[in-house]
Design a protein around this nucleic acid. Structure first.
Length: 392
DNA sequence: AATCCACAGGAAGATTAGGATA
DNA sequence: TATCCTAATCTTCCTGTGGATT
């Protein structure tokens, strides 16, 4: 039930599969397929469709005796030009060629080596660059896109995948024109399409009758609200199943879905908090302390930027970290807001100014626990807000 | 209607981190 | 390895503002 699982059939993506296939088939006739750019939000099946078509292409190629190479690279993992070239080159490793070391060679030498390798292989090489927008610098793309002009008996075609529609706008125009020969946009799934996808997986993964009939529509509806993300729908369903199993219940019910949704959200927040930079953590801690303090004296939970900044300064002194200006802290606070850890909306208190009204948007204790994992916070753990807070 | 608080949030310049380049 | 570049971070200085109070 994981989204990485590749089913035999991809529901509701026939059109995309056919489109992509028709762009790539020239490979089987020894012609160069166009370079393609694929756009679409997360969980719209971009990766699944490309891998699927790639597999088909390999099969067809083997049957007809045509040489087709298919290289999949995720640019989030491989994000520099050097490592990208190295990765591609190492796909062609055989007993005659030497392996390219992961450091040491000048980039252009790797490039030349790669060209030779591709040339020796012959046939058509399709390179998939998943999440190209994560790739640093567009020189790598530029080099790759003009590789064809230096090749004789072999062809290279590049498929770029991105979930950022505006990605190409900031690209070198030369790269833009050569890579964007074909464009494809993957629309989000709607609720009923998501249902089909879920049902397909359920048939494989679950025993019949172990799920309430209103669970799938609920999962689909929730995921459809989030721009039709199939990955999210699957995660939700899987988490529901796990929770149901853990609770020793015989069937998956709506209750489990609600729990799962909650758990996914908390997991997300925990992950975000854990990877926050130190300054943001300090600010978050300041907010948490103020909230706890407010609760103790029983005042209404409104926290202002100024209060947070005061506590933040104190914390910074104790932890001996350098402190930021209030202007910067205000920006970091709105960042925390965007990440969904806190809600900070602007209110006006009339004569008493205009500020943000800051609230924690999930469990205080959970976040506190994560913050204490950070070494800097050890000595702050018993910090108390001393007096002088306005008691209304 | 005028005032004025306590910030919001824009602009521009300075600093810094890290990768690119020689 | 040294230095050059660029993007991100941060500061300084600033103007703007919703609405309770006067």
């Amino acid at each position: 039930m994981r989204h990485t699982f590749m089913p035999e059939i991809l529901p509701h993506r026939d059109k995309e599969i056919n489109n992509l296939a028709s762009v790539l088939v020239p490979a089987l006739r020894d012609e160069t397929p166009s370079n393609i750019f694929i756009y679409g939000k997360t969980g719209t099946g971009k990766t699944a469709v490309t891998k699927f078509v790639g597999k088909e292409l390999l099969n067809k190629g083997n049957k007809t005796g045509k040489k087709v190479n298919f290289i999949y690279i995720n640019c989030e993992v491989v994000d520099t030009q050097y490592r990208l070239l190295q990765n591609i080159a190492n796909h062609f490793i055989d007993e005659w060629s030497e392996r390219i070391p992961f450091t040491g060679w000048p980039t252009d030498e790797v490039f030349v080596k790669l060209k030779n390798m591709i040339e020796k292989q012959g046939g058509v090489t399709v390179i998939i660059l998943d999440e190209v927008d994560k790739l640093k610098g567009d020189e790598a793309l530029y080099n790759l896109s003009r590789i064809n002009s230096d090749l004789g008996n072999s062809k290279v075609s590049i498929i770029g995948i991105s979930n950022d529609l505006k990605y190409t706008e900031f690209l070198d125009p030369r790269v833009k024109s050569s890579l964007g020969e074909e464009n494809m946009i993957f629309p989000p799934y709607d609720a009923s399409e998501l249902q089909d996808i879920l049902n397909q997986r359920i048939d494989i993964a679950l025993k019949p009758g172990s799920i309430d009939e209103d669970v799938v529509p609920l999962c689909s509806a929730l995921a459809a609200q989030e721009h039709g993300d199939a990955r999210r729908a699957l995660d939700l369903l899987r988490m529901s199943a796990e929770l149901a199993e853990r609770a020793k219940s015989l069937r998956i019910t709506k209750k489990h879905v609600r729990l799962a949704q909650n758990k996914i959200e908390i997991d997300r927040i925990i992950e975000v908090v854990r990877t926050l930079p130190t300054q943001s953590k300090l600010i978050l801690l300041a907010i948490l302390l103020q909230e706890q303090h407010n609760k103790k004296i029983g005042s209404s939970g409104a926290i202002t930027t100024g209060e947070v900044y005061e506590i933040y300064k104190e914390l910074g002194k104790k932890a001996r970290t350098d402190k930021l200006t209030q202007r910067r802290v205000a920006d970091l606070i709105s960042e925390l807001d965007m990440l969904g850890i806190i809600t900070a909306r602007v209110i006006s208190k009339g004569r008493y100014g205009r500020t943000r009204d800051i609230k924690i948007s999930s469990s205080t204790e959970d976040i506190m626990k994560i913050l204490h994992e950070d070494g800097v916070f050890k000595e702050l753990s018993n910090y108390k807000i001393h007096g002088q807070m306005k008691l209304i």
